[in-house]
Simulated assay, not measured.
Amino acid sequence: MDPNHGGIEAPFILGIVERAILRVPRSSHHGLTKVPTATRIAGRTYLDLARLENIDARQLPEVVLAARLCHLAHTHRAMVIIGQCALWAHGDPSDPPLPPITVASSSPSAPIRLPAVTVGTHRFPSVTIKPRHVCRLPSAENVGDLFLETPQSAQVTIARTSPNPRSAFVQLCMIGHEFTHFDNFHLTNSRLNEKYWKTLLRAQLAGLGKSARGRAQARWMITHADAGCASPGEARVLYELRAAGLTGIRTQVEVHTRGRRYFIDCAFPAEKVGIEFDGRAKYGDDARSIHSSLARERERQRRLEAEGWHIIRVGWHDLDHPGELIAQIRAALAARVG
């Protein structure tokens, strides 16, 4: 991502931070008086703030995380950065967007405490990292001197170990959407890309062996994740449908009506029941754009209904009570069958 267009991805920040890292020999700490812009990260690792180009205060949390990862890579070379932290470093969607540091080691390791960091008026609290002891390190690659779990392996790690299956499922769908460059107007190629993505994940999972913790949970997520979900809300709706055991579901179902082409977020084509997620962002940021978007949505719904579709609109508030939503959808499906 171009930093001049309002956002900086983690790999770009890591590259900047790596060039700004100073590692000071034990006997030379006094030499830092010649570098007044140096701030201590941990141990003998410092960051020269003057070398941080194209960085402002909004990116400081990411800068400190990147600097801490660089310190760990230098002082604990046998460890691999895993899970959400690895996805963040690769530039993939992570949850949370700024994840805690997670590492794995093939030998038992004591917790690692990193001190608080102060950058100007910003203070970042100390953190304690508890390395995960594994018999075999996950698939990893060297990226800018960081040993990162590969993106596919990290996705499987999250699918296996997440205590929040809903969140992990949504994240997997969003990663799949980006990985496949999913395009409604090129559905065949998008679905082929999705098949390839899932093949990579299944291969990673199979390589862990049948005794891997959370294997069944990961297998379910890989099977049911859908790259056609274009937003977290759509992915969350799909999760509730899949978890309820409903079948015959497809995403981005194409419908032609009166010279128009529409794509229904999630649908049961056999029963012609569609579920559309209404996220706040889709309607715009001002009164005029919101009014215009709502008018288009009403016209869209009328056209779909004229083609025999029953459309159920879902918002985030409906997902607070998934049982009620599933009951509504089951009733709609039963009415169509009857």
Results as ranks from 00 to 15, higher is better:
Asp318His: 09
Ala270Gln: 14
Ile326Cys: 06
Ala140Phe: 04
Arg313Pro: 00
Asp285Met: 14
Gly207Phe: 05
Gln252Asn: 09
Lys210Pro: 01
Pro3Ile: 07
Ala230Asp: 15
Val103Ala: 04
Leu60Asn: 08
Val127Pro: 00
Ile329His: 07
Arg132Lys: 14
Gly338Lys: 15
Met1Ala: 03
Val24Gln: 12
Glu149Lys: 00
His181Phe: 12
Trp220Asn: 01
Lys282Tyr: 05
Trp316Asp: 02
Ala110Val: 08
Leu65Asn: 06
Ala218Val: 08
Leu14Pro: 00
Asp183Pro: 04
Leu304Asp: 01
Gln252Glu: 05
Thr121Ile: 13
Gly248Ile: 12
Ile290Lys: 14
Ser153Arg: 15
Glu194Gly: 14
Gln84Lys: 00
Ile112Gln: 00
Leu72Asn: 12
Gly214Thr: 04
Val273His: 09
Leu325Pro: 03
Thr118Pro: 03
Val117Met: 12
Gly274Met: 09
Thr180His: 09
Phe185Tyr: 15
Asn189Tyr: 14
Asp285Thr: 15
Arg300Met: 02
Glu271Gln: 13
Asn54Ile: 05
Pro269Met: 13
Gly6His: 06
Thr75Pro: 02
Ile41Glu: 05
Pro3Gly: 10
Ser153Gly: 11
His5Ala: 08
Trp309Met: 08
His29Tyr: 06
Thr121Trp: 13
Leu201Ala: 13
Gly7Arg: 09
Gly144Thr: 00
Ala67Ile: 01
Gly6Asn: 07
Ala42Phe: 09
Ser153Ile: 05
Lys282Thr: 10
Arg160Glu: 08
Val35Gly: 04
Thr102Ala: 13
Thr199Arg: 15
Pro97Ala: 14
Ala218Met: 14
Val337Lys: 15
Ile81Ser: 01
Ile249Leu: 15
Ser190His: 10
Gly228Met: 06
Asp285Pro: 04
Glu178Phe: 13
Gly6Gln: 02
Arg26Glu: 03
Pro232Thr: 06
Arg298Ser: 07
Arg23Val: 06
Asp278Phe: 00
Ala327Ile: 01
Leu325Gln: 02
Ala67Met: 05
Gly248Pro: 08
His224Glu: 11
Ala225Leu: 09
Leu192Val: 12
Thr161Met: 05
Leu69Gly: 07
